[in-house]
């Protein structure tokens, strides 16, 4: 065999070898990641049916879109015999059941109705107080902070408390407005650890029994109780991926107080509604994660005097109502 032929044979053999190696390596590349790359929350979405002690009633479907806020009004707010629900959405608010739509010039992030009948609406950086007896004319309150991002509002007999996730403070206004008092500034001497708010979910509510202020400290998965002057009274926290606690970086995202002082909480991440006793122990589940659309956030919640629970569901644009099973 001539040298030229030998060279050609060698060349063809080497090329076949390279081709074979290429094919082998190409086929042996993994096409799927191993088990350690699995991420499933299915186990955490399951809830023991025995824990679910509430049933869902027909929802309220407001006429306005992009719902962002929910509030319950005193029973005889406009006229007697009705449970009044106020919802806020894109540049509007609607009063239910009569369906009146108010043009409120901005999208409210939170709403509250005081015993005095005024409607308090928190927007990103200011508050508007609407007077139903004066054709819904409003006054505007400013917040003394550059980082302001209002997320919740609660009203008691004397004060209006506004949760500001941007500044990590609660601002306490007098009913007539004016300069607010700052609540929640870190002060170890007074036992105030400050609010840890990684994302804009920061809710406040007034205790029905003693009128004190309750606030979520979402980064700590805690609910904290304050006097009107900002001094801490008590707190409980429950950090857990399991049903008895709160998971993720900012939960509970919203809460309300039940007539007996228990807490009804809603969460993001794993959307669920639960009731915790006054000491933080889980009492029951109102709605399990599979009752909500995936990824839903902003489940604002309220409870009426009969223990019926109202949950704002922005993904379905509804107010969903839950009642304890008989």
């Amino acid at each position: 065999m001539s040298n030229a032929k030998k060279n050609w044979v060698w060349f063809i053999l080497i090329m076949l070898l390279i081709l074979g190696a290429g094919l082998y390596l190409g086929k042996s590349r993994r096409t799927e990641l191993g088990r350690s790359f699995d991420y499933s929350l299915d186990d955490y979405r399951k809830v023991d049916p025995a824990l679910i002690r509430y049933q869902e009633l027909d929802p309220i479907v407001p006429a306005i879109s992009n719902l962002t806020a929910l509030a319950l009004a005193p029973e005889n707010w406009m006229y007697e015999g009705s449970q009044w629900v106020v919802v806020g959405g894109e540049k509007q608010a609607q009063l239910l059941p009569d369906g009146v739509v108010l043009d409120i010039e901005g999208t409210p992030s939170c709403l509250a109705v005081g015993d005095d009948g005024f409607l308090y609406a928190g927007f990103r950086d200011h508050i508007k107080v609407f007077d139903p007896k004066a054709d819904w004319k409003h006054t505007r309150w400013e917040v003394p902070s550059e980082k302001v991002h209002l997320t919740s509002i609660a009203v008691d007999e004397w004060y209006v408390y506004v949760a500001d996730a941007g500044s990590r403070r609660i601002w306490r206004y007098r009913k007539e407005g004016g300069d607010p008092l700052e609540i929640g500034k870190k002060d170890w001497a007074k036992g105030i650890r400050g609010f840890f708010i990684p994302s804009p979910f920061f809710d406040v509510a007034i205790s029905r029994s003693d009128g004190s202020l309750w606030a979520v400290n979402p980064g700590h998965h805690a609910l904290e109780n304050y006097r009107p002057d900002g001094m801490p009274l008590s707190a409980w926290e429950a950090s857990s991926m399991m049903i008895d606690g709160f998971s993720g970086c900012c939960n509970p995202s919203h809460f309300a107080l039940m007539p007996d002082g228990a807490f009804v909480t809603t969460e993001k991440g794993l959307p669920r509604v639960k009731i915790h006793n006054q000491d933080g122990e889980l009492r029951c589940v109102v709605a399990a994660p599979d009752q909500f659309d995936d990824g839903v956030t902003g489940l604002d919640v309220a409870a009426d005097d009969n223990g019926r629970i109202y949950v704002l569901d922005p993904s379905r644009n509804q107010v969903r109502i839950f009642e304890e099973k008989k």
């Binding site: 191993g34 350690s36 790359f37 991420y39 929350l41 955490y44 990684p198 994302s199 980064g219 998965h221 950090s239 991926m241 998971s247 993720g248 970086c249 900012c250 991440g269």
Partner: peptide, 28 residues
Amino acid sequence: CGYCDLCGGYLRPDAKSRDTGAENQLCP
């Protein structure tokens, strides 16, 4: 980023504790 202690991107959902232990880390 919220600079959270309980970081969903860093810790496994079933993490036993919030620390840098390999068994707690989500990233394989």
